[in-house]
Amino acid sequence: MTEQLATASSFIEVIRARSSPREFLPDPLPLEVIRGVLEDAQTAPSHSNTQPWMVHVVSGATRDELSAELLAAHDEQRPSSDFTATYGDGTYLRRSQHHGAALYGRLGIARHDQTRRNEVVRDNLRFYGAPHVALLFMPQLGDGVRAGSDVGMYAQNFLLSLTARGFHGIPQAVHGAYADTVRTVLGVSDDLKLLFGISFGTAKADSPVRSLDIGRVPLDASVVLHDTPLW
């Protein structure tokens, strides 16, 4: 029982330690670490065990080429998203705006400073300096909801495995905004749709946004209880 409690405690610490850094050291991770993370991610559950994820891990010269092509697509205004991205005009939009205000505020970038704000977007396409990026693709099965949720569980395993091993990752939906560019560079067929990328490596300890904590809404804002009297 003591061993089980210790394991549970360690797992909770990993979950709550995970964060999304936006500045990485350039040092590549050991190959055995990357393989271990991929093996951990592969244990994710999926509908009927379909395992509908196809993951391209990009490093080295290919990483640099992909970044250059993504920056060019952004600068030339050539978006090519496989999915519609919208936050509506209510609660979810306000949460997104709060996140943006906190991030730009920490960076000292004023709302009207479009030049510096654009550079923040471009930094996304440089993978925040991370030496590796995993691009998460899925087949178009039905309306895509089930496959998309399966890829989300895969991604969470991936991120938590990095955290448990002392490394870091950040999911970036902006990569999916240039799906055609990514497919062209990596030689991926059109029948695989790009959800997002995860840039990963070792976070820079003295980054101004390393300690940025956006926070989460209270449980009663997203959980409805039925005969489960937690509060």
Rank of each mutant, 00 (worst) to 15 (best):
A205M: 07
L38W: 05
T7Y: 09
N49R: 13
P208D: 06
G176E: 04
A61P: 06
Y154M: 07
I214N: 07
Q77C: 09
P45M: 10
V174L: 08
G215S: 13
Y87R: 07
T62I: 05
I214K: 05
A130W: 03
D64S: 13
P30A: 07
D206Q: 12
M138S: 09
G142Y: 07
H132E: 12
Y87H: 06
Q4P: 03
A8I: 15
S10V: 01
V58K: 01
M138N: 00
G36C: 07
A155S: 15
L107M: 14
L125V: 01
H47D: 10
D40N: 09
A130I: 02
F127K: 00
R116E: 13
Q4W: 10
W53F: 11
S199L: 07
L160A: 04
A155F: 01
S222A: 10
S20F: 05
L5S: 12
M138T: 12
E119R: 11
A8F: 10
V121L: 11
Y104I: 08
I214R: 09
E76C: 07
T62C: 03
T86E: 10
P208L: 09
L159Q: 14
H56T: 04
R165Y: 14
T163E: 08
S9C: 06
L230M: 09
R16V: 05
L159R: 05
T43G: 01
M1D: 03
A173N: 10
P28M: 08
S189E: 15
F137Y: 12
Q42P: 00
V185H: 03
A203Y: 00
H98N: 10
D227C: 06
Y104E: 08
D75T: 14
G201I: 09
N49S: 10
L136D: 00
A85W: 15
G88C: 05
M138W: 02
L136R: 03
D180A: 11
E23P: 02
G148E: 11
S199K: 02
L70D: 05
Q42G: 08
D150V: 12
E69T: 08
F196P: 03
Q140N: 08
L162Q: 06
V151I: 15
A72W: 01
G187R: 02
G166H: 14
E76W: 04
N157D: 10
Q51K: 12
I170S: 08
H98K: 10
S59F: 11
L93S: 07
D206V: 13
F200Y: 04
A179G: 05
S80P: 03
Q172G: 03
D27A: 11
Y128M: 00
D82A: 06
R78W: 02
L71F: 00
I15M: 15
E13C: 05
A68M: 08
D143F: 13
T184I: 00
T181D: 06
R22F: 04
P79C: 02
H168L: 01
P45E: 11
V174M: 03
L225Y: 02
F137P: 02
R78M: 11
Y128D: 05
G90I: 08
V209Y: 06
A61S: 15
Y178C: 00
P52C: 13
H98P: 02
S199P: 08
